[in-house]
Structures are given as C-alpha cells and as structure tokens.
Nucleic acid binder design. Sequence first.
DNA 1: TGTGTTATAATCAAATCGATAATAAGAAAA
DNA 2: TTTTCTTATTATCGATTTGATTATAACACA
Lengths: 274, 274
Amino acid sequence: MPYKSEEEFLKHYDSSKFEKLSMTTDIIIFSVSNSLTTNYRKLNEKHFSVLLVKRQDYPFKDKWCLPGGFVKMDETLDEAATRILATETNLHNIYIEQLYTFSDINRDPRMRIVSTAYMSLIDKNMLNEKIPKNASWFNMKILEDDKTINITFDNEIENFTVVIKKTLKELTTDRYKYSVVKNDNLAFDHALVIASGISRLKNKLEYTDIVFNMMPEYFTLGELQQVYEIILDKKLLDPAFRRIIADKVEKTDKVKTGGGHRPSALFRYKLNKK
Amino acid sequence: MPYKSEEEFLKHYDSSKFEKLSMTTDIIIFSVSNSLTTNYRKLNEKHFSVLLVKRQDYPFKDKWCLPGGFVKMDETLDEAATRILATETNLHNIYIEQLYTFSDINRDPRMRIVSTAYMSLIDKNMLNEKIPKNASWFNMKILEDDKTINITFDNEIENFTVVIKKTLKELTTDRYKYSVVKNDNLAFDHALVIASGISRLKNKLEYTDIVFNMMPEYFTLGELQQVYEIILDKKLLDPAFRRIIADKVEKTDKVKTGGGHRPSALFRYKLNKK
DNA sequence: TGTGTTATAATCAAATCGATAATAAGAAAA
DNA sequence: TTTTCTTATTATCGATTTGATTATAACACA
C-alpha cells in the first residue's frame, strides 16, 4: 500500500474491495387538475393528483407504484430520473427536484436497493392523452393531524387509503418520522415516499415559486389560488392571497371570458428581477 | 419468467441482473464556538465552524474532507452516518439530518460512488478534547452574493478558500445550482457538499428549532442571538429577536454572572406544546 | 332589463415589525 | 463608597403588514 502517487494508487485500485448495491430512482409526479365530470356550474372543481403505474411484474405485481427504475453506471441520479420520466411516462422537459434517499434494508424484497426519490410538478391538463396505458392519475384526499396522515387515492375505478403514523423526531422539532400503518395497494415504501413529497411540496409552496411549474403559461389569479388551496387544503382570503403573489406574477392584456361572470385577467409568471 | 407467485419469483431472482455501485455517507458537522484566543473583553467572539478530517490515504491524500465512509449492506444510511460519526470523530448521540445525495459520475476517482450527505449540529464547547488527531475544526468566513460563494477555512495553522459559482436552476427560482470554481484543499466534491449544507442550515434556522442542537442546555438569549447572527451573517435587533424566539424558550431561575455587566437570565429550549 | 356569479379594488381595525430609547444591575475603576 | 462601563431587558411608538369585510365591476343568462 505505500503508493508513490495518486496515479499509481488508482492504477492498482481494486474496486471490488467494498460491497455494492443497486440504486433506483422513483419519481412522484404531482399535478392539480380539473375534475373530469363537467357538471354545469361546477367546473372549477380541482384535485390534487399523482401519477401511479401498475406493476406488470413481480415483485408487487398488480400493485400501484411510482414511476421508477434502476440507475445506470453512466448517468447521475438527475439524469436517471429524467430518462425514466421520459421512457416510462412520456413526460419531457419537466421540473424535477431531489426529495430524499430511502435506504431501509428490506424496502425491496429482491435485494438491497437504495432509492433516491424525486418530485416533479406538471400542468396535467396539457398532456392527458399521452400517458401510457398502465399508468393512471389518482386524485388524493389527505386528512392529517398531529399523529396520522390518511391519504385516499381515487382514479374513478379503484379507490384505496393508506394510513401513516407520524412521530416527532428527537427533541428538536425538525420534522416528523413517518411509518406506514396500513397500505394494501402501493408497492415498496412508496406510501412513505408520497407522504414525504406532499409534506415537502406544502412547505415549498410557501417560500418558493415552485407552484408555477403546475400552471399553464397564462392563468387567472382565481385558478392560481385554487391550486394553492387544493394543495394546502385550506381556503385563502382573496385580498391576502393577491398581496402575497402580487410580485410574482404580471398581468397580461388577455382575459378569460365565458364563465358567466366578470371576465378575469390572465396573468403570467414573472421572473423576479432581484 | 411466468412465475406463479411472489415467493416463487423471489426464489429465482438473480440479483446480479442490475449494475451495482458503492455508496458512502459524508457528514457535515457544524458548530458555533467561542474563539480560542481569550482576549480581555473580547470573549464572546464566536465562529461558525466545521469539522474536517485530513485524508491519510489515496485518493486525495493529505487533503481535507468531511468525515465519511462506505455504507454496509446491513445498515441504513442513517445508521451508517451515525456509526461513522462515532468511529471517525468520536461523536455520539448527535442530531443528524439527511441533506442531499450526490451522484456525479466522476466525483470519486476510484470508481462510481454515490454519496448521501448528512448534516449534524453540535455544541462544540462540550467536547473539544475528544476529537481525533487527524481531525480539526475550521472556522468559516462566508462571502456570498447572487453569483458566487467564497468560503474561507481557517484552523489557525492552515488557511484556504474555495470559490463556488451559483447559477439559477431553470425558470422556477427554487434554488441555485452550485459548481466549484476554485478548490485546492478539499477532497472529492466536498466543497459543494459544505456549500449545500450551509445553505440548508441558513434556511432551516428561520423556520425550525434546529439551532438548539448547537446550544448547551442552559444559555442566555445573548448567546443564542450570537449563534443566529454568526450563521446568518447579519446583525439582528434585540427586541425583534426576542419576540421571535420568545415561545421557543423558557426562562429558568439560573443566571450567568461575571460578565462585567448586568447578569443574564439563563434560558432553556421549550418543546412546543402545540 | 334584471339577476346571479365571480373578479377586483377599497377600506379599516388589529396585529406585527423596525427602530430607538429607557431602565437594570453586576464588574471594574476611581 | 461612588462612578463608570457594559450588556441585559423592557418600553415605546410610528410604520407596515395582516385579517376580514364591504363595495363596485362586468359578463352570462333568463
């Protein structure tokens, strides 16, 4: 081992010295979309939704899971997530951000697999037709209190609920630790992954401009407010909301008419000059 | 491949089917500590500091790096980070949180290694004597603007600066992407890791109670304020600061005297009832 | 022409923030 | 013992930001 230089060391390095494992990435694709049931005068019913894929093979055959796949040796995690998004769900040029790396020893029954989860946000209404047939959008209804998160998934054919327990992590109230209490329909640890993603998204909504990744280029302030309300799961007061997002958007000269009421101005995301 | 059941599938599963890689964890240990030079009337000079280890072997022999090591097959990433913290730096029962997973293809010259970075916070003044001899605390001076971060590391023997370029990530101003411009002293991509950790810590300081992991059990409000000021790198107004942290701490009947001025009440972290 | 509906602005009291000033009390010096 | 210095801590107060309600606008439809 007394090498003279870095070059010499590397020339003799035995890369089998350390144990190895496989890595995957799983991608949570969030969207907020209009209800498909076009009731008269009930149009604007929006839903917080996530794209799931039905597993075709073992393990977890026929369960639902997040789009995901193995990381290749010549790509970074970001590249893997982008590739998988393209090949598995036909989504291109999508905003993604790394969420968390899950490493429970038995999270995959096949072998030791560590998975880095990504979160992506899209404006679903632009590409409803393009998703593959083994994928499906699920609307989510989320009930959360100090101790529990209940997420009900609904794609108008199937309907199921997962229950997650929250426990405070150590003394410092950084965040909660999640553990699955009930889950009969989601593969792997993806119930945990989705719960983490929802938590992250809710937080980021408040202090970043992340939401505009789910919006079309032009939108009314009412539509934007609805997206906030659906994700945060609470009503916001109009004037307060408008004050908060005032310097993030700019009014265009377009308007949206036909709603049976005063037309709304269409706005656009404004890159912050500062 | 037409297996009849999950059990049968798993029995025949060939785990060598997918490529494998090694994983490591690197841990950023942050602290805020009093200056060692005990000037008369200059006692309370605090520094934002990080614990680095001098590499004993190739690659990057004699460069400084974060404590870290390979993840074993029978431990999670959290467990690996905890173990490495104990064996490599003699730190036990420390707050850690997962920061980010770094996966650049050539981040390690030996082979493909993906590393999950952790961040930990400690009250350094309690354990100055216990760190191993190849480890050292470095005080950091951070200069940051829209485009660049300069971090100067100083352990009273060595002194070096790394320069990192910031570029806005895509349209949505989520955060910046970092790339190293100048770094002659830190191994691997650890300059990036540290910059990410600093950014995370600054953010979390504002909306979590994470700071109390760096505080002793009893502290004065002045000491607490100094920690905020050092990390955020700006002066805070006393009354404003006290209003913000008022419901996070509780006054005890202890006081700290001997400062040449009115004694200060000692406070303690109060778990939020709500 | 009137009614229903949502868009958008105006208004205003209450709460919070930013900043400065005032008071407290031990340590050190005179 | 008295004065001075220093930081701790509280008080104060105008400016700003919220929370919430109300008023006005404008199109669709009857």
